[in-house]
Design a protein around this nucleic acid. Sequence first.
DNA 1: CTGTATCCCATACGATACTG
DNA 2: CAGTATCGTATGGGATACAG
Lengths: 122, 122
Amino acid sequence: MKTTEVKMLNFRGNEYPCCASLTMGIIGGKWKTVILFHLINEKLRYNELRKSMPTVTERTLSLQLKALEEDGLIKRKVFASKPPLKVEYCLTDFGKTLIPLIQSIANWGDSVAEKYSMENSV
Amino acid sequence: MKTTEVKMLNFRGNEYPCCASLTMGIIGGKWKTVILFHLINEKLRYNELRKSMPTVTERTLSLQLKALEEDGLIKRKVFASKPPLKVEYCLTDFGKTLIPLIQSIANWGDSVAEKYSMENSV
DNA sequence: CTGTATCCCATACGATACTG
DNA sequence: CAGTATCGTATGGGATACAG
C-alpha cells in the first residue's frame, strides 16, 4: 500500500506528478490555449471571442473563461450594469507570463499544418 | 445551417479551428507531455517510463505511447522476440521538433509550482 | 449582449486481472 | 518484461432553450 514516494507539485489544490503536467493541467483541454492565443494582443468581448472560435459552444466558452479566470490567467471586466452588457476579457500579468509558451504552441501547430497539408495536396 | 466558414487546419484526419488547438490535439491530455518530457534526453524502456510516472496506470501509459507513436512523435524499438522482451521508446525527428516547446511547458510549470509553494508555506 | 440551465454523450482515464 | 482485456467512472464538451 506504500503510496508512491514522489514529491508532487501543487497548484490551487491540485497535485501534479511533473512540472509538465502542471502546465497542462492549467492550459490543457480543447479550448483554453485558443482563448489565450486570441487574447495575446488584445482584450476581447465575449462575442468577439465566440466569433474567433466558431466551433465552440456558448456553454463551453463560458466554462473555460471561468476556469481561466479562477486560475488567475485572465481578467473579466464588466462595463455596464444594465443590458446590453459589455464584458471584456484580457490577460492578467500572470497570464502574460504564458505568452511565449502560447506563441510556441501556436507556431508549432502552424508549421505542422503547413507541412502536413503540403504533403497531402497537389 | 450555414456551416461556419473558417478554414480548418488538418492533421492526420483531424480538423482544428486554430493552430494552437492543433498542437494541443497532438500533445494534449494528462500524460503525453510528461512522456515526451522524459524522452527528451534519453530513450527509455516501458518500465523505466512507468517508474518515472508513478501515478500512471499500465493501460493508460500503453495507450498514450501508442497514440504518440501513431502521430509520429516517438519510435518504438523491440530488441528481442522472446521474453523477457526489451522495448525502447525514443523521440523521432518529428518528435524532436517539440523539444523546445516541451521544455518551455516544463519550465513554466516549474516556475509556477515554485512561486505557488512559496506563497503557501512558512 | 452575456451568459445559465438542462440534458446527454463520447472519451479519457483509473483499477484490476491476466497474457505472450 | 511489456503489455491486453475488461469494466467502471469522471469529466469535458456539444445541443438547445432560456434568462438578466
